[in-house]
Each structure stands twice: as C-alpha cells, then as structure tokens.
C-alpha cells in the first residue's frame, strides 16, 4: 500500500521534472537569438540594451547555472517578464487562468453529467429511435472541431437571432451578465465534452448490463431503470474518470479556440496573442501552467479511482 503511494508520487514528480526541464529547454532550442525572441521582433531596442538584458537574464552563463537560476525563479513563482504586456508573466497568467478554469470547469461538469445520463439511456435501450438519434447526433458532434461549432453557434444564436452577446466574459460584473456571456461558449464545449462521454458510456452500459450482477439486481426485485441507475451506471461510469483526465488537456486546447472565437479574455486569447506577437515568456508560462493542470487532473483521477472502485484498494 505504502509502496504504491511512493511509486505513484515518484512517477508524478518525475513527469513534473520533465515538464519543467522541457519548459527550460524549448526556448533555448529554438532557432534565433533568445533575447531577440524574448523581446519580440516588433519592439526596437539597441544592441547595448540587448547585451544588458542578456546579462540580466543570465543567458551568457553556463547552461547548468541557467537551469538552477530558472528553478530558483520558479520556486519564487517568478515566470519571467512579458515585454509586450509590460508586466510579470505570473501576474498575467493569474489574471487569466481563473476565467478559463471557470469556463472549462463548468463545461466539463455539464458535459460529464449530460454524457453520462444520455449515454446510460442509449446503452440501456439501444434499439429505440431516440437512442439511435442521440448516437448519430453525438457521433456528429464528436467529429466536429469545437471552434467550428463555436463559429456556427456564434453565427446562429448571436448574430442571426441576437439571443446572446457576441464577445467577452461580462459587461458588468454580475452573475446574470457572466451567465449570458458564457452561455454559448459553455454550450459548445459542454456538447463537445458530452459527445465523448456519451459514446464511452453507451458502449460501457451495453457491456455492463449483460453482467451477472445486473441480472441478480433484477432477481432481487429491482425494476428496469432502477437496475440501470442503482447498479449498472456506477460500474459503467468508471472509464469516464480516465477519459476526463486524459481529455483534460484536449478539452483545454479546445477551450482555447472557443475563447478566441468568442473573444473571451482567458488563456486562449492570451496564448493566441502571444503566438502572434512572439511573446515567448508568456507562452512558456502558459505551457507550464497547462501541463501542470493536466498533471493535477491525472492525480485526481488516480485518487478518485481509489475512492469509487474498491477493486483498486485493499481492505483497511
């Protein structure tokens, strides 16, 4: 028991170390002068300033020293300075990530709920017209890139029908305003996430309902849907935990595109602007943060399995 915990911790720590090292190495492996890259091509600075900056960033020192300095900075939550935004990267990220996490969190939650519920129904009664229709619809959705769906929704519901605002997280910082602004982007991401959960759960329920415990639940006197919701769904939902963890990075990147379409000032637009403006410190910081988020999602999934599936843990 203790040894597996140690093993797991070691595994997570080593992936974290790998992420950090990659994050250190990538900008240094890129072609061109890192200092020029750091400042960006659209900003003019004299050679003297560049040399000063090089010394200040320690880029003229040996690689190992640079690495140690980088780690030290990380420990102080210092992710560098964005010359484009004229503020420390950590501050910029802190400001943006909250919104994106709200957006992604609500969407993934809704998507999981919707996907599990409808997927369970479709797997329980796969022959009905409704569940065939649902399956077709969700397969279509899962094949559609989220940014395309976002454009479609924006075109139909915001421009044509005028039901929702076009852009931004809010006009005034009230719950109503945030909700109406987030409705479309959340719907798009939730539907996309639901489509993936739906397909997994449908297959999973089709498989699980043939298990003997489902028949025994019937023999105990449970009636139809009670068997599904009291016995089958929990077993069938276990793969969803893995899917959510694995999908987190994927959904996150989808969210970034959706943010750009809806002009939401979250991580997506930040990264987009950073790419356009070659703002490497911001990109580096964003990469680290997202990688960390995916890592945490995986740790949570690991932990969650031990809680919900007794086969993963041993008796106390």
């Amino acid at each position: 028991m203790i040894s597996t915990a140690v093993k797991k911790t070691f595994r997570y720590l080593s992936s974290f170390a790998l992420i950090v090292s990659l994050n250190f190495a990538l900008p240094r492996l890129m072609p061109g002068d890192p200092v020029k890259n750091l400042i960006g091509e659209d900003v003019y600075v004299s050679d003297l300033v560049i040399e000063e900056l090089r010394a200040e960033l320690g880029l003229n020192r040996p690689l190992l020293e640079q690495f140690l300095a980088y780690i030290q900075a990380l420990l102080r939550f210092d992710l560098g300075y964005s010359y484009h935004l004229h503020s420390p990267v950590a501050e910029v990220l802190q400001e943006r990530i909250g919104w994106t996490l709200l957006f992604v969190g609500v969407s993934v939650g809704l998507g999981a709920g919707l996907g599990v519920f409808l997927g369970a129904y479709a797997g329980w009664k796969p022959e009905t017209k409704l569940s065939r229709g649902l399956s077709c619809g969700f397969i279509l959705l899962s094949c559609t890139p989220p940014y395309f769906l976002a454009l479609l929704f924006l075109g139909i519901f915001a421009f044509k029908l005028g039901l929702f605002p076009f852009k931004g997280f809010y006009d005034t910082l009230t719950l109503g305003s945030i909700a109406s602004h987030l409705f479309l982007p959340v719907s798009v991401l939730a539907l996309f996430s639901a489509s993936r959960n739906f397909l997994i759960l449908r297959g999973s329920v089709i498989q699980e309902k043939e298990e003997l415990y489902a028949l025994y639940a019937r023999a105990k006197g449970l009636y139809e849907r009670e068997i599904l919701f009291r016995h089958v769904v929990k077993n069938a939902s276990l793969p969803i935990i893995t899917l959510l963890a694995l999908d987190f990075g994927f959904l996150f990147s989808g969210a970034l595109f959706i943010e750009i379409v809806f002009s939401l000032n979250g991580m997506g637009t930040l990264i987009y602007d950073a790419i356009i403006g070659k703002d490497y410190p911001v990109l580096q910081g964003a990469f680290l943060l997202i990688a960390l988020a995916v890592l945490i999602a995986n740790i949570l999934a690991d932990f969650l399995y031990a809680v919900v599936d007794p086969r993963v843990r041993r008796p106390a």
């Binding site: 415990y213 025994y216 006197g221 009636y223 929990k234 086969r311």
Partner: peptide, 28 residues
Amino acid sequence: EKEMAKLRGNELAIIFQNASHALNPVYS
C-alpha cells in the same frame, strides 16, 4: 414485469451459480 418485480427477491428468490459475479463489485 412490474408485478414480477414485486415477487422477485421477496416471495421468490434465487441464488445464482457464480456468486463472485452476481454481487456488484462497486457496492459494499
């Protein structure tokens, strides 16, 4: 089926052959 469900497990019960599979793995 509903009337049958009222009898099953109550007046009319069965013990299956394969006990380890008849019990639900995720419930106590």
